[in-house]
Nucleic acid binder design. Structure first.
Ligand SMILES: [Zn+2]
Ligand SMILES: [Zn+2]
Ligand SMILES: [Zn+2]
Ligand SMILES: [Zn+2]
Lengths: 138, 138
DNA sequence: CTTGAACCTCTAGTGACTAGAGGTTGTAGA
DNA sequence: TCTACAACCTCTAGTCACTAGAGGTTCAAG
């Protein structure tokens, strides 16, 4: 049996975050001692490990809740799991596209100013003031 | 003179967002009619355009506030503007690095499941349950 | 002068936590 | 067995950049 602090150390998830996960329902409520403190078993460690790993990969709490639900029913179709993963991938790829465009503009903007001028002539400020300086949409 | 709705159309920033920008101090308070409605001049359009463009490039409100402050003093050094832009670039590049790692893992995970199996054997769920399947840190 | 779209302020909600106040419990050492 | 104190508990509020809604007022066209 683990206390919440021991679970925290075992998984790398902070104590208040564990309580938050319980509050929003992605982590099942733990058993309690007579004094009302949470106690976790190995199952709890694995459940929280799953949540942490999925969060690290960018899945939303809502998506993770659905995935854990699926995991509790090993005989159900995994179509939803597949869809959630593909959706998450598409999401990440969209963010990558947007960030790449931003990176290109920011490199141009950064390169245009050494910081040794005066703000009236600053390329950073001029570029932000007018999108026409930009090479891409964004 | 523009009403807040006309300013919204001119810049593509939603009306409640404009009020929010004023509230947090990044957009200077507008003049008012006798009936207390906001009125903007060309200067206001440019100020908000600057904010929108910087937000589109991912700058924080705090950073934009500093940049606008600098823009109001054309004779000051632009060292801060340069530093803010470089910081933002570094930020974006860090996000790109992280997202690229996530993309690689998510492609692997997605490719490992067609959604036509059962969740007890699902590669998506197995991969989320155990980071050992992963090729990268993340 | 009437109508109604657009405006006003204020509060609360979003996601995924994080911080702090104020009080209680578990446990190791004396 | 007692005591000290780290770790636990709940609850509220704050973060960021908005967004939604309630309930009331103003502007401008017809
Ligand atoms: Zn400069
Ligand atoms: Zn641009
Ligand atoms: Zn599957
Ligand atoms: Zn992993």
């Amino acid at each position: 049996m683990y206390s919440i602090g021991q679970l925290s150390k075992a998984t790398g998830v902070k104590v208040p975050t564990i309580r938050y996960y319980e509050q929003v329902g992605v982590l099942a409520s733990a058993g309690r001692t007579d004094g009302n403190q949470r106690r976790y078993d190995q199952d709890g460690v694995e459940r929280l490990g799953f949540i942490k790993h999925a969060r690290d990969l960018g899945f939303s709490i809502e998506a993770i809740t659905a995935l854990i639900d699926l995991q509790q029913h090993p005989d159900r179709s995994c179509a939803d799991a597949s869809a959630i993963a593909k959706h998450q991938l598409a999401d990440v790829q969209e963010k990558l596209r947007r960030l790449s465009a931003l990176e290109a503009e920011l490199i141009r903007i950064s390169d245009g100013c050494d910081g040794d001028g005066v703000s009236g002539q600053c390329y950073v400020l001029a570029s932000l003031a007018d999108h026409k300086h930009c090479r891409t949409d964004h």
